[in-house]
Design a protein around this nucleic acid. Structure first.
Lengths: 378, 378
DNA sequence: ATTTGTTAGTTCAGCGCACTTACTAACTCT
DNA sequence: AGAGTTAGTAAGTGCGCTGAACTAACAAAT
């Protein structure tokens, strides 16, 4: 499994397991439980994780000392069932235990950043007009923005997460990001060296997918998020983990040819998905041909995605972008086409929806990246 | 990642890590190394796994006592480099340490089985004409065949692996296999109860993909195997692990619609991949329209797979089935179409090839299933 | 009011595992 | 012959989890 590693704490050559790792893992199990299902007693946690009460007590005690958890007293008494025995003391996750600094570099001519708490709630934001800066200049802007946000945090900073356009490897190196004029930019490393914090970098569609998985009401099965902006990209969560792909280019779906009779793309090919699904083109079509044109785009999208949905037996397909364009005939036609073009097992249980996180998907996903990397919560 | 669990040794509720697990994992690391790169000294293993020499010595000693490994003496001296220091003693994997019983239920009207060693070499085989048996009758035949093969093994049997058509969940329950008339058949459980051995069951295309990954010369990146028989199915290895999908139906690609203007499929839809790529149809076409017809089929296949390859950023695409049909214009057209329809990052590093394992892919894959499940080797 | 039973949480001794440190073994090069 | 180097082993340490036995705090039965 390609595991994302923060800079400054590289994974060991192979994946040998130290006892220390076991402990971190068990902490993560408990955190995950409290994170997704809310407060619980130590005994509940023991049952849920299959750890013993002793171990749970120990771990919880440690995390309470770290101020990651807090005791919440006895649960509200439910008179329906006679609660025999000593009443439990609830333990809960403390979202304000630390802050996360996250950046979204995917918006054109703008860099957005925020400080969030551990629940992904945005506490403050900042943005910079890039004025077309690229290469080292763009990198400097990122550094500046990140540093400002770190200074703004009022609690210890757990880490820095970045969602950027382009192809990003698991080390946090941006291999290629044409918009920003970056090639082989060691973004994570350089930020880590400047800030002394754990830094995680991923492609914007990937962080968006992670956001949906962590903070959206996503199910257990596989999830694919298609991000529709000026360009089109996708992120996949399979088995609870981000998929990176052989050359770190998983999700690069914008230049899959879908309409060979269509218009020429910037990449030179004819009829790339981007030339059909990109926002500018969608707006144009909507104006020209009305809403039913969106339905036709949905059919095309469904046709490209049907093989993917069928092959991966996905559970959820999330569309992220301007809701007025996506959440109508387009979504419906996409869903219908996929169902029509795949087997019942694949299609019938598929959920096709738009993102629940709005404009902040990428940003909040960057936070989720840190959460997953540092605390093992997702 | 959904981990496959043998019957009779269920995974613990969550995934807590015991010390015992750590040890098993480290044993697996060493085995994996010896399995894929051949004999090595303890010191080499320590370097490769990042374990200490002490730990490696301990683990190796244990495995030598278990007769899984053996000492091979000093390595052939290479006069090129001056080998200073104490000469190492090589340690090697013993393929004959145990035998594996594997079954292939995917061939029509036939059940094939074999006894293999740990290297996947077939030592003896057996097959049964099913004479159209379905349901409990077919199950009885499987039991009989498995028992006979277990009796034939001349070494302790590591486990039983089964590759079957249909949808199989991670517990080894065949949810649906029309050809065999099976629905919710607890195949793994019933075989385990009858034989008292670990049993692993997976879809035939999945075992085939695993075979290619374990015994073929597969790379590290993602692999997809498309199995072309009377029907069409696929198996995926991502991050070194089999993908199961939300409803255990990953790889069910045979009924993705590819040619809406084509012929009606048994499933009711029009133009399923199976109606184009199924062997009977291919033979028909070849006879009627000559080899170039295969090229056209390749183009269709490439069109369905391009989105998948692009989305997953796959490394290898393996075609498995009658080589005379697949390994010519069809393969070439598929590769060309995928490259034409995807970005350079996705397409340029993709390897499209036919299977190197011939008729036995599914069978040998069933062995790989056991190997992976019991020894953690893949 | 006391006893009984149940559940929550803690204390303590013990065990398995991999680690560090320090050793011996066996070879090459000078 | 001695110095240097690499492979492998022995002994002791520390970490993290476990089971068993404890205390605490309640409900229900007597």
């Amino acid at each position: 499994m390609t595991q994302l590693s923060p800079v400054g704490r590289p994974l060991r050559p192979q994946h040998k397991v130290l006892q220390e790792d076991a402990r971190r893992h068990h902490r993560a199990l408990i955190l995950q439980q409290l994170f997704s299902d809310g407060p619980a007693s130590r005994a509940d946690l023991a049952r849920a994780t299959a750890l013993t009460r002793v171990t749970v007590s120990d771990l919880v005690g440690e995390m309470i000392r770290d101020e990651l958890l807090e005791e919440l007293g006895a649960p509200a008494h439910d008179p329906a069932q006679s609660r025999v025995g000593k009443p439990p003391t609830l333990v809960g996750f403390v979202p304000e235990a630390a802050h996360i600094v996250c950046l979204d570099l995917s918006v054109e001519d703008t860099m957005t950043g925020a400080v969030t708490n551990l629940a992904g709630t945005v506490l403050s934001r900042r943005s910079v007009d890039t004025r077309g800066a690229t290469g080292p200049d763009a990198l400097a802007l990122v550094h500046r923005l990140a540093a400002d946000l770190v200074a703004e945090a009022t609690r210890p900073v757990l880490g820095v997460g970045v969602g950027t356009p382009g192809v990003v490897d698991t080390e946090g190196t941006v291999l290629d990001a044409p918009n920003l004029g970056w090639q082989d930019v060691h973004l994570a490393r350089s930020l880590h060296e400047a800030l002394g914090l754990p830094v995680f970098v991923a492609n914007d569609a990937n962080t968006a997918a992670l956001a949906e998985h962590t903070f959206g009401h996503a199910g257990e099965g596989g999830l694919m998020l298609v991000r529709v902006g000026k360009g089109v990209g996708a992120g996949l969560i399979l088995g609870g983990q981000l998929l990176h792909g052989h050359r770190a280019a998983a999700g690069e779906i914008g230049h899959v040819v879908i309409d060979p009779a269509g218009t020429t793309c910037a990449c030179g090919r004819v009829g790339c998905l981007e030339t059909v699904l990109g926002v500018p083109r969608l707006r144009q079509r909507l104006e020209h041909d009305g809403p039913e044109a969106l339905g036709r785009v949905g059919e095309l999208l469904g046709t490209v995605l049907a093989p993917v949905v069928g092959t991966l037996n996905l559970h959820e397909l999330v569309l992220s972008g301007p809701t007025d364009l996506l959440d109508g005939p387009l979504r419906e036609a996409t869903a219908a086409t996929i169902r029509r073009n795949t087997m019942a097992v694949s299609g019938d249980h598929l959920v096709v929806r738009t993102s629940t996180l709005g404009e902040d998907v990428v940003l909040v996903g960057a936070a989720a990246l840190v959460l997953a990397g540092e605390l093992g919560v997702s």
